[in-house]
C-alpha cells in the first residue's frame, strides 16, 4: 500500500512536471488554433462567432507573443464592422489598459470615436484641419489672378491696337500672337514655358512662368475682345475727333477707348471668371495654389472634404468678381442712362 501510494504520488508529480513543462507549448497551440478558428468563422462570414472564439484568448499582463493585443484588436475591428461602436471601444480600451501608448489602439479608438460623432461635426473638424493649407493656396490663386488682371488688359489693348494698326509688321506680329496663344491649350503653353524653354537656355521660376503663361494667353483673348470693342464704336466718333484736330492717338485715348469700357465689361468679366479657374492649371508647373493644396490634402487624408472646401473657395471668388464687374459695368455706362 505504501509502495502504491508512493508510485501514485510519483506519477502525479511526474505528470505535473510534464504538464508544467508542456504548458506553454500547449497554450501556444491553443492561441494559434483560436486564430485559425476565428479566421474560419470570418471566412464563413460569421463575424459574431469569430468574436466569441477570439475572446477565448486569455487576458495577459505580460503579452510576449502579442496574441492578446492581436485578438482584442481583431475583436474591435469585427465589432466596428458590425457597427457595435461601444463594444469596439471597450475592446480597444482593454488593450490600452495594458499598453497605454499602443499606437494601433489609439488610432483605432480615434476612428471609432469619429464614427460615433455626427457627420457635420466631422465635416467641421475636417474643414478646420484643411482650411489653413487651402487658404494659403487661395492667397496664391488670388495673387496669380490679380497679376494677370493687371497685365492682360494692357497686353490686350496693345494687341488690339496692333491688329487695327496700318503698320504691317506690328499688325502681323499681333495677329501671330493671337493665332498662337488662342490656338493652343493653356496647359501646353505653361508646360512649354516652364519645362520646354529651359532646354533653350531660358529658365523661369514657377511663379514667373505661371504669370507669363497666363498673361500672354489672356492678353491674346482680351486683344480680340478689345479690338471688337474699338471697332464697334461708330465711325463718326473718330471723324468728329479728327475734325477738331485730334491726332489718332488723342482720338483713341480721349474718345474711342473710353466709350468701349461699358461694352467690354461683360466679356472681360467673363474672361476673368474663367481666369480664376484657369489658375488651377499652374498646379502642374510646381505652383502650390488652391487646386494643388486641395489635391495634396485629398491625397494625404483621402478625404473629399478638401475638394468640397476648394470648390466653395472658388465659388466665393467667382461670385465676388461677378458682383464687382456688375458694379463697374453700371458705373462705366452712366452716361447712357437717361
Amino acid at each position: 500500500m505504501k509502495v502504491l501510494c508512493g508510485r501514485v504520488i510519483r506519477t502525479i508529480l511526474l505528470f505535473s512536471c510534464l504538464l508544467f513543462l508542456l504548458a506553454p507549448l500547449s497554450r501556444a497551440e491553443d492561441t494559434d488554433q483560436i486564430f485559425q478558428d476565428a479566421n474560419d468563422a470570418m471566412a464563413r462570414g460569421d463575424l459574431p462567432s469569430a468574436i466569441t472564439v477570439l475572446k477565448k484568448v486569455p487576458f495577459s499582463k505580460s503579452d510576449d507573443s502579442g496574441a492578446f493585443v492581436r485578438s482584442r484588436m481583431q475583436i474591435a475591428r469585427l465589432q466596428f464592422a458590425l457597427k457595435d461602436f461601444s463594444a469596439a471601444t471597450a475592446s480597444t480600451k482593454e488593450v490600452l489598459a495594458v499598453y497605454p501608448d499602443n499606437s494601433e489602439a489609439l488610432n483605432f479608438l480615434a476612428s471609432v470615436q469619429k464614427e460615433q460623432k455626427p457627420r457635420y461635426v466631422v465635416f467641421w473638424e475636417d474643414c478646420l484641419r484643411f482650411l489653413p493649407n487651402l487658404l494659403k493656396g487661395a492667397v496664391m490663386t488670388i495673387t496669380l489672378v490679380f497679376c494677370t488682371m493687371l497685365i492682360s488688359p494692357l497686353g490686350g489693348l496693345l494687341i488690339a491696337l496692333g491688329r487695327i494698326s496700318r503698320f504691317k509688321p506690328f499688325s502681323t506680329l499681333c495677329w501671330f500672337i493671337i493665332w498662337l496663344f488662342r490656338g493652343t491649350p493653356l496647359l501646353l503653353q505653361l508646360f512649354f514655358i516652364y519645362y520646354g524653354l529651359p532646354s533653350l537656355g531660358i529658365t523661369f521660376k514657377p511663379f514667373t512662368a505661371a504669370i507669363l503663361g497666363l498673361g500672354l494667353n489672356y492678353s491674346a483673348y482680351l486683344g480680340e475682345i478689345i479690338r471688337g470693342g474699338i471697332q464697334s464704336i461708330e465711325h463718326g466718333q473718330m471723324e468728329a475727333a479728327k475734325a477738331i484736330g485730334m491726332s489718332y492717338g488723342q482720338a483713341m485715348r480721349r474718345v474711342i477707348i473710353p466709350q468701349t469700357y461699358k461694352r467690354l465689361m461683360p466679356p472681360i468679366g467673363n474672361e476673368f471668371i474663367a481666369l480664376i479657374k484657369d489658375t488651377a492649371l499652374v498646379s502642374t508647373i510646381a505652383m502650390v495654389e488652391l487646386m494643388r493644396s486641395a489635391d495634396q490634402m485629398f491625397n494625404a487624408y483621402f478625404n473629399v472634404t478638401a475638394l468640397i472646401l476648394a470648390a466653395i473657395i472658388y465659388l466665393v471668388f467667382t461670385t465676388f468678381f461677378t458682383f464687382i464687374f456688375e458694379k463697374i459695368e453700371h458705373r462705366a455706362g452712366i452716361y447712357e442712362n437717361r
Binding site: E234, G236, Q237, E239, A240, A241, A243, I244, V255, P258, Q259, Y335, E336
Partner: peptide, 12 residues
C-alpha cells in the same frame, strides 16, 4: 471746323 449730319457728339 466741321459739323456732321449725325452730330457725332462724344456720348461719354
Amino acid at each position: 471746323g466741321m459739323v456732321f449730319q449725325h452730330f457725332n457728339l462724344f456720348p461719354h
